[in-house]
């Protein structure tokens, strides 16, 4: 009896861990997508407007698949829409980096570059996941994020190695965002449990390769890697910066005001 209960607990905790793991991945994509979508009709040129819109749609596509899967893992009948639109700030599991403001175009491309470089390595690892759903999602997403990393990396180089003003702006963006990078690679018990089960990837294992890749671009861009001891974190546990509430106000307004509204 006791053994059966213990096994049951363990099964439950594995399920809980997978649910949270999917939420983290899905929320990163959802919140970053919402941030990028804020550029729609405001980008510097029409070509960039379309490019940014494409990136947002890639991220929303990933968010849909991941949150839909999270809902099925949870097993309470919640749809991707329920999870995206009817949770509050404390229930979101995204890292702080993706909720940081767009700033100017330079700051946005830095954020997209830093995150996409991480995400493409993460999805590459996840495409080998023992969980077939996750591996399927990752195999699609890895190509998208690899493109985002390349596209935004090119922009970091152009702006960094551009005019005096563009260099100063993109360096300021890098300085503002760098402290939030730390959290992305922090592994907690959920990350480790998923990595051990062969389902997830330990983010800490990706950091060295990520740093080498990012440093190469930063150097080409004649920028300087910031040094900071300030490493805010907590997003993965639901402790967010003040920005997330405003993002959710935009994102969730329609479903909150007209519950169940259909397109």
């Amino acid at each position: 009896m006791t053994a059966a209960v213990a096994r049951n607990d363990q099964a439950l905790s594995q399920q809980d861990a997978l649910y949270d793991y999917c939420l983290r991945l899905g929320d990163n994509a959802l919140i970053l997508g919402q941030r990028v979508a804020e550029w729609t009709s405001n980008a510097p040129t029409v070509e960039l407007d379309i490019a940014l819109g494409n990136q947002a749609l890639d991220l929303f596509g990933q968010a849909r698949m991941l949150l839909d899967y999270a809902g099925r893992v949870e097993g309470k009948g919640r749809s991707e829409d329920d999870i995206a639109f009817l949770r509050d700030v404390l229930d979101f599991r995204n890292v702080l980096l993706v909720e940081q403001p767009n700033g100017d175009f330079g700051q946005t491309v830095v954020r997209q570059f830093l995150y996409a470089t991480f995400a493409s390595a993460l999805y590459e690892g996840l495409s080998q996941s023992k969980d077939e759903e996750l591996s399927g999602i990752a195999q699609k997403a890895v190509k998208e994020m690899a493109y985002h990393a390349r596209h935004n990396g090119e922009w970091v180089v152009r702006l960094g190695d551009g005019t005096e003003e563009s260099h100063a702006r993109v360096q300021a963006g890098l300085d503002a965002l760098w402290p939030y990078v730390h959290e992305v690679f922090e592994a907690d018990e959920i990350d480790l449990a998923m990595a051990e089960a062969g389902i997830g990837v330990d983010p800490a294992s990706l950091k060295d390769a990520w740093l080498a890749e990012v440093t190469a671009v930063i150097e080409r861009a004649t920028l300087t890697l910031p040094e900071t001891d300030w490493h805010p974190d907590g997003g993965k546990r639901g402790h967010h910066s003040e920005h997330l509430g405003f993002i959710l106000a935009d994102l969730q307004f329609l479903q909150r005001t007209y519950p169940g509204a259909q397109w």
Binding site: E47, H151, R158
Partner: peptide, 9 residues
């Protein structure tokens, strides 16, 4: 950049 814009547009 032209190549990337063309891809997106």
């Amino acid at each position: 950049m032209a190549l990337e814009n063309a891809r997106d547009v």
